[in-house]
């Protein structure tokens, strides 16, 4: 029997977007004490990998590129049941855009694969801070992995034959794709719910020593392709969106009765968008 698949899950630590706000008076960003979380999309990727490990055995390594504090995200992932964790951290990586990020991650994945080739790389669909959805495809391209984006299910995997088939969300439907390992999967959201680790898992996670690789340790060859230097895109300006000038206009009725309010609401909506009525009468089957 073959051993189970060797899997790498790329996760990113991101600021919890719910906690970021713009100061109404000074118009500056209030980032004080904003807690960080694992990019929520990556949790679906992690669970998909753990599920495969349940079925087939093998190993799940979580990988992140980020500042030293990103180690806490890895520790969390270990607590959910991942086997191993690697933090890619170096000042040369700072300010990376998607191209430079995928370059550094690729180096690290190759390094992880030096021991035993990596069969599947998982990423989330996108991050909530960058949300570009490009790092996954970037890694696939650089490593020459078969690229499977927006995967909603992995119905079969045959390690012997080195084949995998997946359901991929496409416009207007689901593609059933079959390809060869090694591959890269970006996992679609809401496809599963990340498991809670067991007590031994969290104890192990708390004690684990997180491996930290700098550029050299990760085997990065060209520092010019890392970080700010290796990023063709540059952020020239960050600003707060103009808040919507007006709050919602409240719809009321003199007698306050639900029926009267509802009738007023219908008219308000139809007045605001005259084309709505044609959409409605077109779509509505007689109910």
């Amino acid at each position: 029997m073959s051993q189970g698949p060797n899997m790498v899950v790329c996760i990113k630590q991101v600021p919890d977007s719910a906690q970021i706000s713009v100061h109404p008076v000074t118009n500056t960003i209030m980032r004080q004490g904003v807690p960080t979380i694992i990019n929520p999309y990556d949790l679906f990727a992690l669970e998909a990998a753990l599920k495969l490990r349940d079925q087939l055995g093998g190993k799940v390594t979580v990988l992140t590129m980020g500042p030293p504090m990103a180690a806490s995200a890895l520790r969390k992932a270990l607590g959910h049941g991942a086997d191993d964790a690697i933090l890619l951290s170096d000042r040369f990586f700072a300010g990376a855009d998607t191209l430079a990020t995928s370059y550094a991650l690729t180096a690290a994945i190759n390094k992880i694969g030096a021991e035993r080739p990596v069969d599947i790389v998982f990423t989330g669909k996108q991050t909530i801070d960058g949300d570009t959805a490009q790092v996954g495809p970037g890694i696939a391209r650089r490593m020459g992995l078969n690229q499977l984006t927006y995967v909603s299910a992995i119905p079969s995997i045959d390690l012997e034959a080195g084949e995998i088939s997946v359901h991929r969300r496409a416009e207007g439907g689901v593609q059933v794709l079959k390809t060869k390992l090694p591959c890269l999967i970006t996992m679609l959201e809401a496809t599963n719910e990340l498991r809670r680790g067991s007590l031994p898992d969290v104890l192990r996670a708390e004690r684990a020593e997180i491996k930290v690789w700098n550029a050299e340790a990760a085997g990065v060859e060209d520092l010019g392709k890392c970080g700010m230097k290796g990023s063709p895109t540059k952020v020239s300006k960050v600003f707060a969106p103009k808040p919507r000038a007006e709050k919602a206009k409240m719809i009321t009725a003199e007698d306050g009765a639900p029926a009267s309010v509802a009738a007023a609401a219908v008219e308000t909506l139809l007045d605001a968008d005259p084309r709505l009525l044609s959409v409605l009468t077109k779509q509505t089957t007689v109910a």
Binding site: T98, L99, T132, A140, R141, E171, P232
Partner: peptide, 23 residues
């Protein structure tokens, strides 16, 4: 920025080693 467009854009940008600004 559809599922198709995003799948393609990431691969093309990496191959061409150029910048891609999404969404």
């Amino acid at each position: 920025a559809t599922t198709l467009g995003r799948d393609l854009a990431g691969a093309v940008a990496t191959t061409l080693q150029t910048g891609l600004t999404a969404d």
